[in-house]
Amino acid sequence: MSKSDHIKHIEPYSPQFGAMIPGKFQKFLRTCVLWQLVRFVAINIRMTILILKSHH
């Protein structure tokens, strides 16, 4: 996979042309089990705080 493979499908001046496209490392992190275990804990803490703030 070359460095620009992730943006090969973007058509110039199409609506997608103005969007951020994640690179190889960002995509790797999304399904990297170790990193995602950390995120799992972080998201759960975040959601718990939100739930506690929301009950009246």
Binding site: R30, T31, Q36, R39, A42, I43, N44, M47, K53
Partner: peptide
């Protein structure tokens, strides 16, 4: 501080 967003496997597990 209460408004967040991210995509990944962890969210799928959740």
């Amino acid at each position: 501080n209460g408004t967040t967003g991210e995509i990944g496997l962890a969210a799928h597990w959740i």
